[in-house]
Design a protein around this nucleic acid. Structure first.
Length: 559
RNA sequence: UGGGGCGUGGCCAAGCGGUUAAGGCACGGGGUUUUGAUCUCCGCAUCCCAGGUUCGAGUCCUGGCGCCCCAGCCA
């Protein structure tokens, strides 16, 4: 399954805990789980969790990782998200085998447990309104007070819960609550909700239920039922751990998983919350969940990111409890490393300008050979057509260029990659003074790109034969936001920081003809970056390429 | 001003009382190069602060300071 056998996972504090649990004999088999709520698409932050959970299951003998859809809120969840999530997890390279579950699989058991809590006098049906309940809860510094309904009899509670389940009440009329401690300094322990009434059908259970369990109750129980050994979640659930443990202790479940929290991933120049991603998609700020500018897995996949690169990235950033904002360059480095190793090279001119070789015979054509990968001979060679009129990159010519400009300017010689040395003689401008043709002469003795006299040519530029090239649209993507931490402003709307130039569409790019028949794999357009055909919009009649990421450019930095 | 966490170089992150504080990214510089790419070599911290314990502390203790999370019938 791993397409990169050199991947190795650095250790972290969670693996240290697991190692100790195995050493002490607490566990012989490790079982983790990835528990997404099907209310949106997965993003790179989820990939961190997926890699952690599935990665652990792969690295411990006999380990398994469950995929569990946490579908306890039919008001927000849709089954269409379930399919997208499965696809993303598979694409990332992980397999849950037969361990696909839904929290809704446990609704009967959950209900039985709720009845048990009532019988143990550890839960009661409250009839306060949502507003009243908020008032009774107290606040961060003041304790809450007990609901007048807190001491209903076991029988009355049982009866009420039954009727809630059967749909005899309106939403909000009653609520099943745990009976813990309204004065707890931990607000989560102030008689948290267990079941709320929702008179709506559920994608998996239909109209069987009129009540649905809350996360705090459902999650720990689901973990216990599945025999999860280590329940890994993000930092904001740290305060919920006492409740997680309280439920399992009161219920006396046969298994009691250990919840361990780690910090979420934050990436600079983007946003990672589901709420914001929903807003960007639904508000039309981007074009769907798979917009290549988004940090969603579907967006990144469409953009051309590889699963290997994302897995490598996740292993590089580590797992800790520290708040963090990882620089995009780390992700890009993982990406370039993988793309460089696997991509065939090609010549493509994105902003074309004519290059005319005045001393090249009018009707002559040649077929030259280009190597597909500079370090992997086994990836072979390809034919590249050459003729008198070529296209080169507009930025590869400059008038009055400085000495360090290793490209074309009057009197300067450069190498056309795989072809010949050419020397710029003059340019032709249109009435606006805009350069429209660059003229040069070539040295026939430099065929293939080298001269027997050992003459040094500092610059090499890419080109395509005007007669043989195919045109295409190329979409150059840039960061979605213009500042590193768009979501950090407390009262600032992150949308104010959307980068207005996050995508640049180049309509008239000229590609080497071999790309016409290319599949969907990534290519390196030499000297420019990595590109792939857009999986949605590219057709044989109208090629559309996405720029996945640029090449490193130390020249640009110096300028 | 309640409770829960976190603080090692620009960004991540090892380190679990005992050599000159791993590694990656970024950055700066050298070399190779028919991609100003790749590759390669070199450089780049005394650990939030202040006390204390100890022969010895980033690692232990005390006190500060800073940042994050929690008042959904969301997850």
């Amino acid at each position: 399954m791993n397409d990169n056998s050199t991947e190795s996972t650095p250790t972290n504090f969670i693996r240290t805990i697991i190692d100790a649990d195995i050493a002490s004999g607490k566990h012989k088999q490790i079982i983790t789980r990835f528990p997404p709520e099907p209310n949106g698409y997965l993003h790179i932050g989820h990939a961190k969790s997926i890699c952690l959970n599935f990665g652990i299951s792969q690295d411990y003998l006999g380990g398994i990782c469950h995929l569990r859809f946490d579908d306890t809120n039919p008001g927000k969840e849709k089954s269409e998200y379930i399919d997208a999530i499965k696809e993303d997890v598979r694409w990332l390279g992980f397999d849950w085998d037969e361990n696909l579950h839904h929290t809704s699989d446990y609704f009967d058991q959950l209900y039985a447990y709720a009845v048990q809590l009532i019988k143990q006098d550890k839960a009661y049906v409250d009839s306060l309104s949502a507003e009243e309940m908020r008032l009774y809860r107290g606040n961060l510094t003041e304790p809450g007070k007990e609901s007048p309904y807190r001491n209903r009899s076991v029988d009355e509670n049982l009866d009420l819960l039954e009727r809630m389940k059967n749909g005899e009440f309106a939403e909000g009329e009653h609520l099943l609550r745990a009976k813990i401690d309204m004065a707890s300094p931990n607000i989560n322990m102030r008689d948290p909700a267990i079941y709320r009434i929702k008179n709506m059908a559920h994608p998996m259970t239909g109209d069987k239920w009129h009540i649905y369990p809350m996360y705090d109750f459902a999650h720990c129980v689901s973990d216990a039922i599945e025999g999860i050994t280590h329940s890994l979640c993000t930092l904001e659930f740290e305060d919920h751990r006492p409740l997680y443990d309280w439920f399992l202790d009161e219920l006396g479940t046969s298994a009691h998983p250990q919840q361990i929290e780690f910090s979420r991933l934050n990436l600079d120049y983007t946003v990672m919350s589901k709420r914001k991603l929903h807003e960007l998609v639904e508000g039309g700020y981007v074009n769907g969940w798979d917009d290549p500018r988004l940090p969603t897995l579907s967006g990144m996949r469409r953009r051309g990111y590889t699963a290997t690169a994302i897995r490598d990235f996740c292993s590089r950033i580590g797992i800790t409890k520290k708040d963090n904002i990882v620089e995009m360059s780390v992700l890009e480095n993982s990406l370039r490393e993988d793309l460089d190793a696997r991509s065939n090279r090609a010549l493509a001119v994105l902003d074309p300008i004519k290059l005319i070789i005045d001393n090249y015979p009018e009707d002559q054509e040649e077929v030259l050979k280009g190597i597909n990968h500079p370090k992997k001979e086994e990836q072979g060679k390809r034919d590249i057509h050459f003729s008198k009129e070529l296209y080169i990159e507009r930025s590869d010519y400059m008038a009055d260029a400085p000495k360090k400009f290793f490209r074309l300017t009057e009197g300067r010689e450069v190498r056309l990659r795989f072809a010949y040395y050419v020397t710029c003689t003059h340019v032709v401008k249109d009435s606006n003074g805009e350069v429209i043709e660059v003229h040069c002469t070539y040295d026939p003795a430099t065929r293939g790109g080298q001269s027997e006299d050992g003459r040094k040519v500092k610059g090499t530029i890419h080109w395509v034969s005007a007669k043989h090239s195919v045109s295409a649209e190329v979409r150059e993507y840039d960061r979605l936001f213009s500042i590193a931490a768009p979501a950090s402003g407390k009262d600032q709307d992150y949308k104010a920081f959307i980068n207005q130039d996050s995508v640049k569409v180049l309509e008239n790019c000229q590609l080497e003809a071999s790309l016409l028949t290319s599949g969907s794999d990534a290519y390196q357009f030499e000297r420019q970056g990595y590109f792939c055909q857009d999986s949605v919009d590219s057709t044989p009649d109208k090629l559309v390429f996405n720029r996945i990421v640029t090449l490193r450019d130390s020249w640009a930095k110096k300028k």
